[in-house]
Design a protein around this nucleic acid. Structure first.
Length: 194
DNA sequence: GCTAGGCAGGAACCCCTCCTCCCCT
């Protein structure tokens, strides 16, 4: 499963609804052969074209001043798509959150799209720890893996993607050591392209 | 539009429908 290149990414947005809300920050790291390539990262603020709600600034640390002059979502998505190339995307709760925002951005701007394969790192967590009633949120996963960082700021895309990259690395390594067969679920989303 | 939207997964029940909880910002 780790023979393909993976791009682990995280979005910060103005809220939870891909219909009503907008991306304000994206960060990503590339993984090769199951290892995060520290030198290969992607980061951008995104101008949502409207004021960022104060509770979102409190939550993420991202305010109007940060996104002023930043690319709009259509430009960011095009740049991100070029950077991703043929890699498989990975995001935490990406199936229900991040991938929907990527799709919504493409639809909103009428961008031609290409298919992109993705995994949800929550699926990795459920595969590794299938016990019922176990939580699989990022905080719970980080706690089980005993992953902390003195520098990574949670709820900033750069901080979250640093921690998520290490979590994905660790979970993939633990799964690869298993003797019994297993299969990681994948799905198809979209990025700009043709 | 604003602290909220919507899906996944389980239960009950027989193949969909309903319910509850999770998880992201």
């Amino acid at each position: 499963m780790t023979d393909r290149e993976w791009v682990v990414f995280d979005l910060e947005t103005t809220g939870l609804s891909s219909e009503w809300d907008h991306i304000i920050q994206i960060a990503a790291v590339r993984m090769r052969a199951g290892r995060v390539c520290g030198s290969e990262s992607f980061f951008s603020y995104v101008d949502p074209g409207r004021s960022i709600p104060s509770w979102i600034t409190q939550y993420t640390g991202v305010g109007d001043r940060d996104v002023r002059g930043a690319p709009r979502v259509d430009r960011m998505l095009a740049d991100f798509s070029a950077w991703v190339g043929t890699s498989t995307l990975v995001a935490h709760n990406g199936h229900r959150f991040d991938m929907r925002f990527l799709q919504a951005g493409c639809v909103r701007h009428g961008l031609a799209t290409r298919p992109v394969t993705y995994h949800d790192s929550m699926w990795l967590s459920r595969l590794l720890w299938p016990q019922p009633r176990l939580r699989h949120g990022l905080d719970a996963v980080l706690e089980r893996l005993r992953l902390t960082s003195a520098t990574a700021r949670r709820h900033d895309a750069r901080g979250d993607v640093e921690l998520l990259g290490r979590a994905v690395e660790s979970m993939a390594e633990q799964l690869s050591r298993r003797s019994e067969p297993w299969e990681l679920r994948s799905a198809e989303g979209v990025l700009p392209g043709s």
